[in-house]
Design a protein around this nucleic acid. Structure first.
Lengths: 348, 348
DNA sequence: CATCAGATAGAAAGCGCTTGCTGTGACGCT
DNA sequence: AGCGTCACAGCAAGCGCTTTCTATCTGATG
């Protein structure tokens, strides 16, 4: 039924071994023979059996990319950049690799299961993107898995994720703390003293780091933080909307709202508008990430730009072994403050 | 080095066959034996070798999802919904399947290569999303590939893509033509007579269908179309911005701009604003898709909602064989006109 | 008590490919 | 002329798992 290597070999009048070598191209084969084989492959419309080849060679050409939410451009952009470097078809990479993105939906279990699945497929490399969950047992389980993958020869790269010590994983980490600090400092510089903060889900590293940066900035300027000024929620627009209403309820005198990310900030803007407040005249708003739509918002969003595409590309190259890992296997990627129309001096 | 089935068998004092059967659970195994095996698996931390098992069983648990642009929420949302149904880990599906999304970047060659790669992996199913390219040779090549995949037992589902006759593929098609028609009709109903249209890339089915709907609506109302009123561009915000400036240059008297999709529409809004025009007082704007951010735009965007998540979920279920394919193997999914703030009567 | 169906477990034959090792001519060297 | 060297090509042994067929044991049946 299906065409196998042996069929091609028969047709080209050579041994299966020769066909295999022509296809893999890592062994000398006479030009004339090669041509004959290639013609046979073409005529029979032969397609290599991936599993068989992976089994025999003990390696596969699968590269896994784990993301928290594939519908979120934050991850989409990184995944896209990673995939472009992995080669996938058409990439500049020599061997064709199947870059696959796996959507964990932010669930620790799914993350773990996907890692097992990739381990099972003997993936060539795995790139984990986005913040990690700060649950000790789960973190340990993931670390163990990463270590195992690494030991099995799978290259593991963390992109926009905190380092995982002793796992052999290369980490490209975003400086969320620094970015958060700079952003809040900017607002303080404008004269704001009562700042609301809409944080992401409690147990995520990204959430914690950004919040820490924010608080550090407040502390630096001797501003005592009111616990009512922080609200947690999901990383989406809806959460931002609701959290903002809650903040306004708790303290209507806030002059600025800092959001966990741009989507949340957009929700915040909508809530402020719906509450009859002008941005930035009445309340300033700031986001994080600088996703493409942020510059288009009205007013355009003050935020911290994270070089998602660049980071992804680099992670992809490292995963493919086409770029040296950073010294110490850890690199910190800084964000860049983008001051735009959504932030201004308080009340006036 | 790595633990194999045989190791587990030895440890559990059973034959490899038994271990395999315990793991696959489709053959009677005494409870006590099963337990012993499971314990051994656990103790040895055994992970099944995917390729080996795929080879022996002649099937794999890979499901491919092809998207044009993973960084675009349009695809992200569909992919997310599909993946959720495929199961991936944690899904309600029984067997764990590895749902992998492949980013073609809109390139026909990459699309083809990914299909080959998936064929090579003996994928259990493949879902293609988004519009197709209307290049005859390429379309034929894709059709041939789909046919081959289908014949090899891979379930093929098209989601938001026109049917591919005689390939055995199930198609869930969006009614782009109808949506485009309804949208333009709405604007005409408001009194608009000079409507600019920002179309997507020329050679895509989605582009053509939406444009056809637009033109049909114009024709229905006896409006003669000026060729200067149509500009083609990419499906992104930037293209919308530039195309709008071009339209304005060609005919400053336009009272409405219809965009190929919401991102393009947002770009159009930005361009109009930058040109000192108010929306919708001076010019009305309409998009397509109703992506999450569209309702947040200022003013909120009049557009056609496509049930991306529902369609994706259905495609996923069909791909898994958990839902009957539609009669005739083709279903047309209609959009819903969402009238919002960006459209109003012309000039006041 | 002999017989047989039913329930489990094992033996072994692959699945389709890769690769170390073994030929085998053709060349070049002394 | 004799022989070591290459450059290729083929042999055959797996890679780790699934699955058919067969063997064994149990308890039920007549």
């Amino acid at each position: 039924m299906t065409v196998t290597l042996a069929d091609v070999a028969a047709r080209a009048q050579v041994s299966p071994a020769t066909v295999s070598r022509v296809l893999n191209g890592n062994y000398p084969v006479a030009a004339s023979t090669r041509e004959r084989v290639l013609r046979a492959v073409d005529e029979l419309d032969y397609v290599l059996n991936g599993p068989a080849s992976a089994l025999a060679a003990a390696t596969s050409d699968l590269v896994g990319i784990l993301v928290n939410d594939i519908a979120d451009p934050f991850f989409g952009i990184m995944a896209s950049a990673i995939q472009a470097e992995i080669g996938g078809p058409g990439g500049r990479a020599g061997g064709e690799r199947l870059a696959v993105v796996c959507n964990t939906g932010g669930s620790p279990e799914r993350e773990l299961t996907y890692l097992t699945l990739l381990q099972r497929q003997r993936a060539a490399a795995v790139v984990l993107t986005g913040g990690a969950v700060e649950d000790a047992p789960h973190a340990a389980a993931v670390a163990a898995k990463l270590r195992k993958l690494h030991d099995a020869g799978t290259r593991v790269v963390l992109c926009g994720r905190p380092p995982a010590p002793d796992t052999g994983a290369i980490a490209l980490t975003f400086d969320n703390r620094g970015g958060g600090h700079e952003l809040t400092e900017h607002l303080i510089g404008l004269g704001h003293r009562r700042l609301g903060y809409i944080a992401g889900p409690e147990e995520r590293t990204t959430t914690r780091h950004r919040l820490e940066g924010h608080r550090a900035a407040l502390a630096d300027h001797g501003i005592e933080e009111d616990p009512r000024w922080t609200v947690h929620g999901r990383y989406d627009r809806q959460a931002g909307y609701e959290a903002t209403l809650e903040l306004l309820r708790r303290d209507p005198t806030l002059t600025a709202v800092v959001a966990a990310n741009d989507s949340v900030a957009l929700g915040a803007c909508a809530a402020l508008r719906d509450s009859g407040l002008r941005i930035p005249d009445d309340v300033s708003v700031a986001g994080f990430d600088d996703l493409p739509f942020s510059v288009d918002a009205v007013p355009s969003l003050t935020t911290v730009r994270l070089p998602l595409a660049e980071a992804g590309a680099r992670a992809g190259r490292i995963a493919m072994g086409r770029e040296e890992p950073p010294p110490g296997e850890i690199a910190t990627i800084r964000g860049e403050l983008m001051v735009r129309g959504s932030s201004g001096g308080p009340r006036g």
